[in-house]
């Protein structure tokens, strides 16, 4: 006998398949190869927030209301991020990646899936302190236009960055975090010297292709949302976008171990998930 809960679940999964197909055809965003477990939790959260009983009702709402789709997209890509998230990664990048970048007259850096930009500014600060920012161009991309707008403004609520100064110090910050920002009562704003070296642009990792001849690609805590098929697709895009010897930096719990490109990279710092292209 099949449990009722199991039957309901099968129906729900069928509805989700229809929902994803509908979004793909109506708006061109393809969530089909996202990691199903976390995708389902996000969709459930969106459905509950919209106060709708079923995913088919959510599909109806999304299909006919473009403004709601905008909001939905935002909910689908909300992640927790912060300045110098995983400070020891930035310390390792400063010690092991930047010295290699310095051997080039100019370096191109791609921050893929930059969300609201906290980690892009962290990298720019680090490069400036290392005296390399004026020889670098950072391309920060995301598929969410609202996140990109926020990233481009570079204005953050003070209460949301309370740990920034401490992370900055753990990351090996050579100056004072406050030197890089202008502060008003409730907000901080990154200085123009940092912003001038960053180009923000729309790029969808699922549907868009190779991006330049990069010396470094940073894509932290983005691949965890994709299934193995999509991970391999995106990692192939990264491999083709990197120069020989270029660096690939992943999130602290992401690994190339279970992917098709593992033989094309060697670890530079295994614990901090910094790899170098050898293939």
């Amino acid at each position: 006998m099949m449990l009722m809960a199991a039957r309901e679940n099968d129906t729900e999964n069928m509805e989700i398949d229809m929902l994803l197909a509908g979004i793909r055809r109506r708006y061109g965003y393809d969530f089909t190869n996202y990691a199903q477990a976390s995708l389902k939790r996000r969709l459930t959260r969106a459905r509950e927030k919209a106060n709708l009983p079923h995913f088919t009702a959510l599909l109806d709402h999304l299909f006919h209301d473009e403004r709601y789709f905008d909001e939905f997209l935002r909910q689908m890509s909300v992640t927790v991020t912060e300045m110098f998230r995983d400070p020891l990664f930035y310390k390792a990048a400063r010690e092991k990646v930047v010295p290699v970048l310095k051997t080039f007259p100019f370096a191109k850096i791609w921050h893929a899936g930059c969300a609201t930009g906290e980690e892009v500014y962290s990298m720019a600060m680090l490069l400036q302190e290392e005296g390399f920012l004026d020889r670098a161009r950072i391309y920060a991309t995301d598929f969410n236009k609202h996140s990109l707008d926020a990233a481009e403004k570079g204005i953050y609520a003070l209460k949301n960055i309370k740990d920034a100064a401490e992370n900055y110090r753990t990351a090996g910050g050579a100056h004072d975090f406050a030197d890089h920002v202008s502060t008003s009562y409730e907000f901080i704003k990154f200085k123009d010297a940092l912003k001038e070296r960053i180009t923000f642009s729309y790029h969808n990792l699922v549907t868009d292709g190779v991006f330049g001849e990069m010396n470094l690609i940073c894509c932290r805590n983005v691949l965890i949302y994709f299934d193995k098929t999509l991970q391999n697709h995106v990692l192939s895009t990264f491999t083709q976008s990197l120069r020989h010897g270029g660096f690939l930096c992943l999130g602290n719990k992401e690994t190339l171990n279970y992917t098709a490109v593992r033989g094309l990279f060697e670890p530079v710092d295994a614990k901090q998930r910094i790899y170098r292209k050898i293939g």
């Binding site: 996000r42 909300v78 992401e254």
Partner: peptide, 8 residues
Amino acid sequence: TFSLSVDV
């Protein structure tokens, strides 16, 4: 297999 997330 496991998947991780940094959702809310």
